[in-house]
C-alpha cells in the first residue's frame, strides 16, 4: 500500500495513458455523475407523472430559459469557488450592470443593434469593475471574501436604487427584447448564449493553464505561491471574471424580462452557490467541474418546475434543495476524510 519500491509491476503506473475503461470508471464515480443520475431520475419521474405537460416542448423551453441567466453567473462562481473563494455580490452586480446598461441605452435613445452593443459594453465594463474591486479587496487587501462580497452586494444594489430611485427601468430597446425572446434554429437565443458561455468556461477551466492555476490555488495557495504562480493576481482575475459574467447575465436578464428587475436577484448568489456545490465543487476549493455546475443549476430548476406542474406547492422545492445541499457538502467532507489518510 505504502510501498515506493515493493509494488508488484502489474500495479505500477505505466507510460500508457489511462485506459478508456479506467477513465469511464473515474467519471462515473464522480459527484457530477451521481448528480446527473439524480437529475435524470427527476426528469423521468416528472415525465412519467405528467407526460403531457412536463415533457412538452413548451415546458422544457421554460426550464432552460429559467436556468440560462443563473447558469452564466454560476460559471463564474464555479471558478471563484474552485480557487477557494466566494462571491455573494453577483446578484447585485447583475442588477447594477443592468441598470447602468439600461441608462446608457436610454441615453443613446435610438433603437438598434448599435444601441444594444453599447449597452452590452456598459454592462460588461461595470460588471468587470465590480469584480476587480472585489478581487482587489480579497487578493490585495486580504479582506475575507465573504465580507468583501457581502459589502459589495449591498453597495452595488444600493447604487442601483440610487440611480433609479427604486423604480425599474423599462425602456429596454426592442432589438434587445427581440434577441432575448427570440430563437435561433428553434432554440431560444438566451439558451444558446448561455450554452456558449458554458462551453468556453469548460474549455478554459479544464484544458488551459489558467484553469490549472485556478485549481492549484484552491488546493494549496501557499504551494502555488512557492511554485511561482502569481496567486494574488490570479485570484483578482477570478473575481473580475465573476463580475464580468454577472454583467453578461445582466444583458440576458434585460433581454428576457425587458426590465431591470431590481427586486429579482436577491437570492441569485445563493442559488449560484447551491448549484456549484450540488455539482460537486468543493467548498474548500481545489475540486470542481463546469458540467457539475450545469447539473447543479438544473436540479433545482427541474424540481421547481415539476412541483408546479404536479400541483405541489413550489415552496417545497426550497425545502428539498436546502437539505440536499447540506447532504452534498456532507458527502464531500466524507470523501475528503477517506482520501486524506
Amino acid at each position: 500500500m505504502t510501498g515506493t519500491t515493493t509494488v508488484p509491476p502489474a500495479e505500477l503506473a505505466t507510460l500508457a495513458p489511462p485506459s478508456l475503461g479506467r477513465r469511464l470508471r473515474g467519471a462515473l464515480t464522480s459527484s457530477p455523475a451521481y448528480m446527473s443520475g439524480i437529475l435524470l431520475l427527476l426528469v423521468l419521474f416528472f415525465t412519467f407523472m405528467r407526460p403531457d405537460t412536463f415533457a412538452s416542448a413548451f415546458n422544457l423551453r421554460n426550464i432552460f430559459l429559467d436556468a440560462s441567466v443563473l447558469l452564466v453567473i454560476a460559471i463564474g462562481m464555479t471558478y471563484v469557488m474552485i480557487a477557494g473563494g466566494f462571491d455573494l455580490s453577483v446578484g447585485s452586480v447583475l442588477v447594477f450592470s443592468g441598470v447602468a446598461a439600461a441608462k446608457a441605452m436610454e441615453a443613446v435613445g435610438r433603437d438598434g443593434i448599435g444601441t444594444v452593443a453599447i449597452g452590452t459594453g456598459v454592462a460588461l465594463v461595470t460588471g468587470l469593475a465590480w469584480g476587480l474591486f472585489n478581487g482587489f479587496c480579497v487578493a490585495r487587501l486580504r479582506v475575507s471574501a465573504l465580507i468583501t462580497t457581502l459589502g459589495s452586494m449591498g453597495a452595488a444594489l444600493g447604487m442601483a436604487y440610487l440611480v433609479t430611485d427604486g423604480n425599474d427601468i423599462r425602456t429596454v430597446p426592442n432589438t434587445l427584447i427581440a434577441i432575448g425572446t427570440g430563437n435561433i434554429g428553434g432554440i431560444p437565443s438566451l439558451v444558446l448564449i448561455s450554452a456558449l458561455f458554458t462551453v468556453i468556461g469548460m474549455i478554459i477551466l479544464h484544458l488551459t493553464r489558467y484553469g490549472r492555476h485556478t485549481f492549484l490555488i484552491g488546493s494549496n495557495p501557499e504551494a502555488s505561491r512557492r511554485a511561482g504562480i502569481n496567486t494574488a493576481g490570479h485570484l483578482m482575475s477570478l473575481y473580475a471574471l465573476s463580475g464580468l459574467l454577472a454583467g453578461a447575465a445582466a444583458m440576458l436578464s434585460l433581454g428576457r424580462f425587458s426590465t431591470t428587475t431590481l427586486e429579482g436577484h436577491g437570492t441569485d448568489p445563493l442559488e449560484a452557490v447551491t448549484a456549484v456545490v450540488l455539482g460537486g465543487t468543493s467548498l474548500y476549493g481545489g475540486r470542481g467541474t463546469v458540467i457539475g455546475t450545469v447539473i447543479g443549476v438544473f436540479i433545482p430548476a427541474v424540481l421547481a418546475n415539476g412541483f408546479i406542474i404536479m400541483g405541489v406547492q413550489p415552496f417545497w422545492q426550497m425545502v428539498v434543495i436546502g437539505f440536499v445541499v447540506i447532504g452534498a457538502v456532507y458527502a464531500d467532507q466524507i470523501k475528503r476524510q477517506t482520501q486524506d489518510r
Binding site: R212, F215, L216, G218, S219, N220, A223, S224, G228, G286
Partner: peptide, 20 residues
C-alpha cells in the same frame, strides 16, 4: 518543504509541473 507543498486535489503530474 516539510509540508510537501503539494496540491492534494490534483494528479502527481499536475503537481510535478506546478507553476511550470
Amino acid at each position: 518543504y516539510q509540508d510537501l507543498s503539494v496540491a492534494q486535489d490534483l494528479s502527481p503530474a499536475a503537481n510535478m509541473f506546478m507553476g511550470r
